[in-house]
Simulated assay, not measured.
Amino acid sequence: MKTLLMTGVLLALSGAGAVKVGVLLPLSGAGSVSGQAAKNGYQLALDEINRAGGVLGKPLELEFADDGSAPAKAVPEFVKLVTVEKVDFMAGGVSSATSIAVSGPAKQYGTFMAWIGAAAVPVEDAFADHPYFFHYHPWSYYNFEAILGYFKYLKTYKKAKTIAIAYEDGPFGSAGIDATVDAFRKAGFNVVMTEKFKTGSGNFGPLVSKAKAAKPDILYWVGYDTDALPLATEIKQQNLQLGLLYGTPPSWPVGFEKNSLSDNVAGLSLWLSTSPNKDSRTFVAAYKKKYGTVTDEYFAPLAYVNLKTLAAAINRAGTTDKAKVAAEMAKTNVSTPFGQLTFSPSLKTKYQGFKAGNWLHFQYLGDARVPVFPIKFAQKPMVYGK
């Protein structure tokens, strides 16, 4: 009898295992800079969560998987995390293409998704009816709202009138391109070029030649970090004269700021390490202590916030029951390095975190990313080339 009782106790203890979160990231391929930044943020958050007592009284566990920035690899990795590793929750999700690919199995298994990236509208469509999908990153229409506001400023104060658009051929670049062109035109811009390219190809010669003939004030490109240097190189080689080269990659090439080709290149970011925000300063100090360096890749603090808020919701729920955790996640109202985080409906999904008001526009000035717009956050005047 004692043996049976002891066995029952041991079984009960073994069944009360640690909460496991699967993290699907692009640790290789076109999105690897974002993926590695996010992994660093997750590991920093994990350290802090477990020092504070973990989740449901046990150390939280993370299971990382590399989606390779490729839908064909993302799906089996996702399924393995859910069915073999038997994770309780899924986090990560940088690429729109891979996120669309995993939407099927996510809904099939009823997976709880705390997703940090994947901003293209087709992702929103894919998860519109998923009851356990929490999206932290602003959707692309929120991103574009911020971009359009900046370009309108350039139109008024820098006399920018013409825009050329270069966009990668996946969901990240292509989704909503017609609406983008229409919005620019409605704002009074003349869109003189729209040109698709293959991300990672490095072949921008014909595209830049076409842009040079069109003589735009602004070249607006939508692609990944692997495209930044070859595009900037081709622009210099062909001596394309622009008022502004403006890009929206999720991350930028490592060390890009040290290359003279980055001078005056502008972009969009949810966050920069120079932010005076108290939570940002705390994050930067903790990140530097752990890694010995500072990052300007916003996926690092975004992943950090993602895991911290998920862990807090599980602890408040007192269980891994998805419905109860979702109910607690929905109540999230916390200060973060990006500002206050709450969840409210987007156009199609139930739980959307950050929106348009969180974006900063920066330029590479003096070997650093410097906020230049909105003006109230500008640390230096913007440089406009015309």
Results as ranks from 00 to 15, higher is better:
D67W: 08
Y153F: 12
T194D: 01
D182K: 15
G15A: 15
A356D: 07
Q36Y: 10
R369W: 05
V102F: 07
L307H: 10
L154C: 01
S273R: 10
A16W: 11
G267C: 05
A91L: 05
A300P: 09
S260M: 05
G17A: 15
A326L: 02
V265P: 00
A211V: 11
D178L: 10
K86E: 13
I163L: 08
V254W: 00
Y304H: 14
W139R: 13
M193A: 14
D169L: 01
P26Y: 08
S201I: 10
A285Y: 07
K386T: 05
Y304Q: 08
S335I: 00
V121Q: 11
V87F: 02
A114C: 04
L62H: 01
L25V: 06
V123P: 04
I147W: 09
E195M: 06
A101N: 09
F373C: 02
A74K: 05
W271I: 08
L242N: 13
N315T: 12
G104D: 12
A179P: 00
I375S: 12
L10V: 14
E145M: 03
V372R: 00
G202L: 11
V305G: 07
K39Q: 15
G110Y: 02
F144W: 14
Q36F: 05
D67I: 07
D125S: 12
A16P: 00
E145G: 13
A52G: 15
T226V: 15
Q43E: 15
K278A: 12
L27Q: 12
H137A: 09
A37C: 03
A164D: 07
S201N: 10
F299R: 08
S96P: 08
K186G: 04
G149P: 03
G41M: 02
A313H: 08
F133E: 03
L154R: 09
K158A: 11
I235C: 02
K155V: 01
G15H: 03
I49V: 15
V94Y: 14
T98R: 01
T233M: 07
K186H: 02
I177S: 06
P337G: 00
I49P: 06
R369C: 00
D178S: 13
T162F: 02
F64R: 04
L310R: 03
F189K: 12
K322P: 05
S34C: 06
R369T: 06
T199K: 12
T162S: 14
G255W: 06
P374L: 10
T342C: 08
A118T: 04
G200F: 11
S269R: 08
N203M: 10
G176T: 02
V334Q: 13
V55W: 10
R281Q: 15
G92M: 08
A30M: 10
T162N: 13
L81M: 14
F134I: 04
P345K: 08
G339N: 10
L245T: 05
P216E: 08
A120P: 09
A45G: 11
